[in-house]
C-alpha cells in the first residue's frame, strides 16, 4: 500500500470519523462521566451500586427480549430461505413486502396493535361475534397489558431486521458449493445442515444483534402494549432522564444505561465467538 493511497483513505473517511466522534464517542464519554459522578460532581461508585435494586428489571427485560429474538429467528429463517429460492422478480416484491411496514411510523404501528388486542378490540370482537352466532357467550381473551403483548410488539416491530440480513447472506451463497455437495451424495437435509446453515451464521448473528439490542432497551412498547404494568429497564432509564417520577437523576440513569451497554457487549462478544467463520466471512458486527 503506498502513501497517497493512505492519504486518500484518510480524506474519504474523515467526515465519518468526525461524525462518529461527535455523535458516538462524546455521548458515550458523557454516559461514563455521569455514571461515575454524584450530582455534586465528585467521583462515586454509588450509582453503579444502586443498580442492584433493579436486577429483577434487567432480568425481565432480557427475558422478554430473548423470547422475542428466538421467535423472530424461528419466523425469519424459513421466510428468508424461501424468499432466496424464488425468482429474481418475486424476490424483489417479497423483500419490499417485508420492508413495507417500516415505512410507517413506529409509534402509529404500535398504537394500532392496541386497538387490535384490547378486550373490546378487533380480535375479541370478531371471536365473540362468531361464537354468538352459535349461541355461545364468550368472555374474550385478555391479551393487552400482558408480557405476551410486549413480546408480540417486539416481534412485529423488529422482524424485518432479522429477515433482511439472513436473506442477504443466503442469496450470496455460491450455488456451485451446493451443487458440489449434491454431487458428492449429500441429501437435501445434509445440504442444509452442513452447507447452507453454517454459511448463513453471519447473517443470523447480525439479525440477532439487530433484534435483541433494540428489544432489550425499548420503553415505548412496554408502555403502550404492556399498559405500564411491567417496567422494562428502558422505562426506568427514561424516568430518570425525564423525571416522570418526580426526580431527575442523570447519574443513576447513565449508570443504568452503562450496565445495559456492557451486558449487551458481553453477550454479543460471546455470541460472535460461537462461530469462528463469522470473523472471516465479514458478516458479524465485531
Amino acid at each position: 500500500m503506498n502513501k497517497s493511497d493512505t492519504r486518500l483513505k484518510r480524506i474519504m473517511t474523515a467526515p465519518f470519523s468526525v461524525w462518529m466522534a461527535i455523535f458516538v464517542i462524546v455521548p458515550i464519554g458523557l454516559v461514563l462521566y455521569y455514571a461515575f459522578t454524584s450530582s455534586e460532581g465528585g467521583f462515586t461508585l454509588e450509582n453503579i451500586a444502586s443498580i442492584w435494586e433493579y436486577r429483577g428489571t434487567y432480568l425481565i427485560s432480557i427475558e422478554l427480549a430473548l423470547v422475542a429474538t428466538v421467535i423472530c429467528l424461528l419466523m425469519a429463517y424459513p421466510l428468508a430461505y424461501s424468499i432466496s429460492k424464488m425468482k429474481a422478480r418475486r424476490q424483489q416484491t417479497m423483500v419490499l413486502l417485508v420492508m413495507l411496514p417500516m415505512w410507517m411510523n413506529f409509534l402509529i404501528r404500535t398504537y394500532a396493535w392496541m386497538t387490535i388486542l384490547e378486550d373490546t378490540g378487533l380480535i375479541n370482537t370478531f371471536i365473540k361475534f362468531l361464537l354468538s352466532l352459535v349461541g355461545y357467550e364468550f368472555e374474550g381473551f385478555t391479551m393487552i397489558n400482558t408480557n405476551g403483548a410486549i413480546v408480540l410488539g417486539m416481534v412485529y416491530n423488529f422482524l424485518p431486521y432479522m429477515v433482511l440480513p439472513i436473506y442477504t447472506v443466503l442469496t450470496k451463497i455460491d450455488r456451485s458449493v451446493i451443487e458440489a455437495a449434491r454431487d458428492l451424495g449429500a441429501g437435501g437435509m445434509d445440504v442444509f445442515t452442513r452447507v447452507i446453515l453454517p454459511q448463513s451464521v453471519p447473517g443470523i448473528i447480525s439479525g440477532i444483534t439487530m433484534v435483541f439490542v433494540p428489544a432489550v432497551s425499548t420503553f415505548v412498547i412496554s408502555k403502550l402494549l404492556g399498559g405500564g404494568m411491567t417496567y422494562l429497564i428502558g422505562d426506568i432509564i427514561e424516568n430518570y432522564f425525564l423525571g416522570n417520577t418526580g426526580e431527575v437523576n442523570y447519574n443513576v440513569g447513565a449508570a443504568l444505561s452503562l450496565v445495559l451497554m456492557v451486558l449487551i457487549l458481553i453477550s454479543m462478544g460471546i455470541m460472535n465467538h460461537f462461530d469462528e467463520d463469522a470473523e472471516t466471512n465479514g458478516g458479524g458486527l465485531f
Binding site: 433493579y54 429483577g56 432480568l59 425481565i60 411491567t230 426506568i236 424516568n239
Partner: peptide, 29 residues
C-alpha cells in the same frame, strides 16, 4: 416518592410478597 413509585412499578403484579435474603433472581444474576 420517586423510589416508592419505581418500586410499585417494577413489582410483578402476579407474584406476592417474598422478601427472602437472596431468591433465585439474585443467584441467576
Amino acid at each position: 416518592q420517586s423510589a416508592l413509585w419505581t418500586n410499585l412499578k417494577i413489582q410483578s403484579s402476579e407474584s406476592g410478597e417474598k422478601e427472602s435474603a437472596l431468591d433465585w433472581v439474585d443467584w441467576f444474576c
